[in-house]
Amino acid sequence: MTGIVDWSIEDLGVAGVVRPVVRAPDPVLAAPGEPVDPNDPEILRLAADLVATMRVSPGCVGLAAPQIGVSAQVFAVDVTGHPKARTVHGTFVLCNARLVEASQWQKGREGCMSVPDLTGDVKRAGRVVVAGALPGKSETQFTTDGFEARALQHEIDHCTGLLFLDRVAGAHAIHTRKVYL
């Protein structure tokens, strides 16, 4: 089993291309993504594109394949430097990820590049164990908490066709980012 700390973006062996980010109500965001072969060269390219697109997007801490129009269970996360982050695993991509354990539920506000003008209060596990495959490597499993745990749950949701809008806590839990004047 390859540890997540041993993996790096260079392991993909391919340069990523910045792709346009699709916005709700694009149907690709509501479709459950297909499981993928983490060693498929096309998936390595997809992983590199996700990282490249995430890195050029200000404030972006995670990006899932459906957000660049690909209905697949792949996402990139990087919460490095985020003020709410505790445990940080740097930049990584996961395929076919799933929650193995979830605890310490807490409400927090989150946004999404595919829903740019709204934010929502969503209850997420503050501590998770996540399993999945690192692209080009084998299965891995790791524990994280805080904001990285929240980001992982948000991205796993994308891979199953869910947005934060599907999980907001109540009628007063969605907020407009934009001020209409």
Partner: peptide, 17 residues
């Protein structure tokens, strides 16, 4: 008991309790 709707560009969102 409570309902909010938001129109954000072409995206319509309804959340109800």
């Amino acid at each position: 008991t409570d309902l909010t709707t938001r129109l954000s560009n072409s995206l319509y969102v309804l959340v109800a309790e």
